[in-house]
Nucleic acid binder design. Structure first.
Lengths: 208, 208, 208, 208
DNA sequence: CCATAAGCGAGACGGTACGTCACGTCTTGTA
DNA sequence: TACAAGACGTGACGTACCGTCTCGCTTATGG
């Protein structure tokens, strides 16, 4: 969440307060207006900040929204120990779905992902700011399950380990997003249950 | 693909050639520029058509882009019988990933999905034009697996049946989309294999 | 005064009304605000016209102000026959000074001349729009004086003729401008009288 | 040239070097960019000085540029005795035109004059720093001509005397400036000759 | 068979937001 | 206290697209 464009040592330092206000105003505007109607002028006005201050820190709408959303992910997603692998998966699914319940997050996230299909720098930024930070949840869940004896200990080959984590991550995140965005059906306890069960059963043998 | 706004009989008829040129130009521009930078003036120029001609047929950017993308999904996917449930899943995963390999489809699909997050009519249109056409594959695959004896016959409750099909559909489609769009890693044979295995194992017990 | 950038035959024609409104608004704003505070956005607003319409016709503030002032010169400067060469000169001096009495014209004219010292295109535009159109007054005045027998008929060499006209023009215009701008003393009847007398006497022998 | 805003004794003294660098950079930028495009940030950068240093000494663009230009007019013009009134006039015309040959003087002088049209303090400053210093040449020239017997001795009324000197000054200076700035034609020997002749002849009778 | 009614290209129009620039002020750390 | 550096709020800039609106012209049908 710190300013993405760091600066030299000299001169007046950038206001950290401004950063906070801007990201907050961005989320607020995103909720009220949605991606399409959100304008940087409006964000600046809401944050009580000059437009130039905003452009000094972010290159454009995409970058700003990525950071604004990333901050939400940061604070919203964690993985409380619910006692079993299935319960842990169920928990993270519901939590993720809860995030996507905010219309602004839903819209903003999809919009930047869409833009990222033809903007590699943007895709990289999304990866760093949002995706990679959540992937550790998968690793954490697996470690817990191993310590509980629910799944066998790690492969000796770390490449295989990472490969499997990536698969699980794509399945969990992708399923939830597709459910919410495309099927446009809410993620309820029952659905989360069944997805968690599917994964727990499947995981038992996915390693070859 | 015919003009969505039909017109009276009299006067000079609308040029069908223009419709084709506009939709083609839209897809082309979408790939090059993405949703955000795509402008209707540019589309008109590419199509060799006046802006008025374009606005006579479509109400705005959303409608135009959805139509342009929907045309790409006209033909239904099919599901050749590959001998086992796992092979069938693997097949449909690779086939779907193949679709997303086209830049026009990748960019366009994400763009309209993003837009649909705050446009219910648009979401409905996507459902009808794109999603529902593919969902029958899940049902077909299950029927085959049942006839092979790989999974037990249908629940007596058709609601439960539909519920499960929806889950599978969200998992398959969502995982592939997330892999391609967010993780930005190609879907290869190995990944498809592992996803199919995960599902086959998981399906054995997901029914309660 | 017609649009400086002519256009093709096709498409919607430019509004002549807009041109009139813009030039009028420019003069009005020039009077109220002066050159420095005059903004094109404000001019557009006064004229009830979009900023784009303004930029479609003029490249910038300088060009616009030149045209706005030129129109004033056009309508204000003429040369009524006052019966003698001295009276005619006196008349044009007072008339020119009257123009420079408007603070906005004074400011605007000097500002564009100052800018023109390092902008050849602008200098050319000033020449064409303002200076050259007034120079004919010198020729007209001379012709009248010759027909009255106050000065001898033209040289047979037209180059010499033009050379002399240029000298007279620089002296009259320059003296008035210097009096008003630099000496900051009003041009009154007495001063005009004495300048006219100086010139009439001087002209009697300036030709060699 | 000393800092117009004097300061207290205590603390670090202001750098005289900075003053020189700033005024030099201002003249340089004025020639390159003209009044309109000249920016104080740019001047500061050229002078290797911070903007604060600049604003500590001058209140704004106007004040800075006037000081920068005034320094060029420090040394007074003189008037060598060339043997006749006409030759003396010719000499001062060429000398003044020579001054306007420097691009910095040409541009800067016009710029401050333009600015002075709506800034009385600025006009006063120009009068004191530039104009009045040159006006004594007119008086000197007249005295010489009188001692040569070329023109009659002074009026008994000193007001009339000053009045005539002002007229001559406006005519000479104004004509040269108009020739150089507006007509954008160089002042050559021939033009100076003819202007001087015009004045000598005219002066013979301008007194009433 | 030609009048009517639309379609069409071109491009101007009133808007709105953009992203940039310079202004003049301020807040740092260093001299 | 001066100074270099540079962030800050402000406000105009000139541009880009939006969706609408004339224009003058073309192309089908139907009275």
């Amino acid at each position: 969440m710190e300013p993405p464009t760091p600066h030299k040592r000299t001169g007046r330092p950038r206001s950290a307060e401004a950063d906070r206000a801007i990201l907050g105003a961005t989320r607020e505007a995103l909720v009220e207006l949605g991606w399409g109607k959100l304008t940087l002028s409006d964000v600046a006005a809401r944050a009580g900040v000059a437009k130039t201050t905003l452009y000094r820190r972010w290159a454009g709408k995409n970058e700003l929204v990525v950071d604004a959303i990333a901050a939400l992910f940061e604070e919203q997603l964690d993985l409380p120990d619910l006692g079993s692998l299935q319960a842990d998966i169920r928990g993270v699914v519901l939590r993720f779905a809860g995030l996507l319940d905010h219309p602004a997050i839903r819209t903003g996230l999809m919009a930047v992902v869409a833009e990222a299909t033809h903007d590699d720098a943007l895709r990289l930024r999304i990866r760093e700011a949002i995706v990679d930070r959540q992937k550790h949840l998968v690793l954490l869940g697996r470690a817990r399950a191993q310590s509980r004896g629910e799944i066998p200990p790690d492969d000796t080959d770390p490449a295989l380990t990472a490969r499997d984590a990536d698969l699980i991550f794509d399945v969990i995140a992708g399923s939830v997003v597709h459910r919410v965005m495309v099927s446009a059906t809410p993620v309820d306890d029952d659905w989360a249950d069944r997805l968690a069960l599917l994964l727990v059963l499947g995981l038992s043998g996915v390693r070859r």
